[in-house]
Amino acid sequence: MRNLKQKLPGFWFSLPSLVLTLIFSVYPIGWAMRYMFYDYKGYGTERFVGLDNFVRLLSDEAYWNSVVNTFVYAGGKLAITLPLSLILAVILNRGIRGKGFLRGVYFLPTIISASVMSVVFFTVFNSYNGVLNQLLVRYGIVERNVDWLGVDKAMLTVILIAAWGAIGNYMLLLIAGLQSIPDDIYESASLDGANAWQKFIYVTIPMLGPVLQMVIMLAIINSLKGYESIMVLTEGGPIGKTEVMFMYVYKLFFPISTSSNSMEQQLGYGSAVGFVTAIIVGVVTLFYFRLSKRLNQVH
């Protein structure tokens, strides 16, 4: 009894946090896992339909298109962000003049809202009178305005903007990783006659291994999840060219009235799509985890 009395205060102290987490993080998952078996529009009646939503999902071309787009988007973002942030990290980890200031500059995008920046980027990439087109045309780099948000280029534009926002973050994480590499390893490599490039390949990269893996993992998850800036910039358009998985889910839950290809509100089907999407993200993460583990064993 005395034991229980001692154990109570801590329970009360953690209770508000526990209750909020249960209600707003755990219950919603249960909600979605129930409604994915229902036909429910959010109003009117709900009807149990078994696996119908999943059958429908299999032949939902718009969704699978968004899955492909998500991987293009994530792959493109990683391909630009990782090398650049690694190079910046390696340079700025050395005793270079003004490195504190430069780090501050590169990290700046991470503190600004992605949605706000997307509005600014809209005025930059706007095909009709965007800043970028004006510059390109004036200096004769292109002859006519490039349709940056059009069918061909929209995905590229969205990727560039995402990379803009992410480089500084990963740079900083990588610098933290670089600082944990002891100096004497570099010194002994120098004594063995290694040049800067060899030191980078044979010392920095292997020693950075665990941090690099974690950063890549974070980058993969973030790019599979993110849709905020796409929503502001293109709403997934034109003709679904920049539609990504979670935005598709969002549109089923909260139809966007202004968008040209607006969908009907469908909570049951949306839950099923959301569930499958979460599984896809989970599988990719797990696959990467296994892969990086195996790579560790090889080395």
């Binding site: 707003f24 993080s25 219950y27 919603p28 998952i29 909600w31 979605a32 959010g42 998850i221 599979l224 999840k225 849709y227 979670f246 935005m247 889910v249 969002y250 839950f253 909260f254 909570l267 949306g270 839950s271 959301g274 569930f275 999407t277 979460a278 993200v281």
Partner: peptide
């Protein structure tokens, strides 16, 4: 990471 899924509930 379930992103948009929890928004509706």
């Amino acid at each position: 990471s379930i992103g948009a899924v929890v928004l509706r509930p």
